[in-house]
Every structure is written in C-alpha cells, then in structure tokens.
Computed example of a mutant assay.
Amino acid sequence: MMKAVFLDRDGVINEVLTERVRFVNNPSQLYLLAGAAEGVRILCDKGYKVFVVTNQGGVGLGYMKEAVLKDIHRKMVEEIEKAGGKIEEVAYCAHSPHAGCECRKPGSLMITDLAERHGITIEESYMIGDRDVDIMAGKKAGTKTILVGSTDHGADMNFPSLLDAAKWIGGQQESR
C-alpha cells in the first residue's frame, strides 16, 4: 500500500481572495502560491502520492463550466510538473454548496474514493487544507490533518504554507 497527501486547491496550492484574483474561474486566474510547486515536489520525492481534492461549487452555481474547470486543473498540473512535482489525480465536487452530497468537503468521499482506487493507506496519509471543511474531511476519512494558515480548526499540525508542511512531512520520513 502507498501513502498519500491530499491537498485542497484554493488557498493551499493557488491564490484565492487576493489583490490579484478573487476566485479562479478561468486558467488565466490561476496563480500558484509561493513554494507550492516545490512543496509538491518534496512530497513526491519522499514517496508520497499527491492528490488534489477541491470543492468547486462555482460549477454547480453556474459561474463556470466544467470544461473550464478541467482546463484550470490541467494548467495547475502542468505548472507543478515543470517544478518536478506530480499530481496523481484531481478530484472535485462540482455540486452547489448546499446540494447535500457526500463528495463535497466536509464529506470525505473524494478522499476515500481516491484512496481505494490508488491503493492508499489512509492512516499513513495527510489531508492539507486551509479551512475547517478540509480538516473535517481529512479526519472523517482517517488521515492526519495539517492546516495551512493561522486559524485553529483542530488540525493535528499547523504551518504557514504548503512548502513548510511538505518540509515537515519530509523530515518525519527521514526520522523513521
């Protein structure tokens, strides 16, 4: 079995609610956060499979077409690959925020489905997010949880960025 890191997208990998971009509704609005691609590369180098699990209710609400969302994700994956990292798969919930589905975080279906399909040992894996729903989804799935940011949402660990979290996870691997 393999271990994995499940990453939220907005606020962990790319900018959102910044001066440059409010929401990412087309590929030209995707700006990777400083160190995010390097963080993914570090995780891959340490033997983790890296997945993205993201709520994208803008599709369900009609703000963006699913084809455009796929273009955004393709651009994100390509930019991370240029830095030597690899995203195995991007899972997203395109339902509207109040659809009541289990795939939308804080539901854990995106994580558990990916883990099952890819032979991931969930207890050896991490969910990294910047909001309470990310942490709740990780805990519900059975992963260790890491919050990126300063608000306390009950995560197991807290770091200012994906890069800092990846370096810590990498250091945990070296100490085993």
Rank of each mutant, 00 (worst) to 15 (best):
G149M: 08
M110I: 10
T145S: 07
G154D: 13
A99V: 08
D152M: 07
T145F: 05
E124C: 12
K140I: 04
D132Y: 06
M127S: 05
L147E: 03
H153W: 12
C101A: 09
K144Y: 15
D130F: 05
L109M: 09
P106Q: 13
G142H: 14
G138L: 09
I122Y: 09
G107R: 03
S150W: 01
T112V: 07
I128D: 11
K140P: 02
E116C: 05
H118S: 05
V148L: 00
I120A: 06
G149R: 09
I111F: 09
I111H: 07
I128P: 03
D152N: 11
V133H: 09
C101F: 12
D152R: 00
I146P: 01
L109F: 10
D134Q: 06
A115K: 03
T151K: 12
S150I: 02
M136S: 13
G100F: 04
K140H: 07
V148N: 03
H153M: 08
M136C: 11
R117H: 02
E123H: 15
M127D: 07
V148F: 05
E116P: 00
E102M: 04
C103Y: 02
A141L: 13
A115H: 02
G100L: 04
L114V: 10
D134E: 01
I135E: 08
A141G: 06
G129V: 13
A99P: 08
P106F: 10
H118I: 00
I111W: 11
D113W: 12
A137D: 12
G154Q: 14
D130N: 10
K140F: 01
T121M: 10
G107D: 04
G129W: 11
E123S: 15
G138Q: 06
P106T: 10
E123Q: 15
H153A: 05
S125K: 09
E124W: 13
G138R: 08
A99D: 15
D152I: 06
D132H: 08
T151S: 04
P106R: 14
Y126W: 15
I146V: 15
T145R: 01
A141Y: 13
E124Q: 11
H118F: 10
C101P: 08
I122Q: 09
D134L: 02
G154L: 13
D134F: 05
I128T: 05
G154P: 07
T112I: 03
Y126D: 12
E123V: 03
I135N: 02
I146Q: 07
D134I: 10
V148C: 02
G119R: 12
T112Q: 11
A137T: 12
G154T: 15
A115M: 02
A99W: 14
R104A: 00
G149N: 12
G138F: 01
L147G: 03
K139V: 11
R131K: 07
S108T: 07
K140Q: 07
R104Y: 02
I122N: 13
A137I: 12
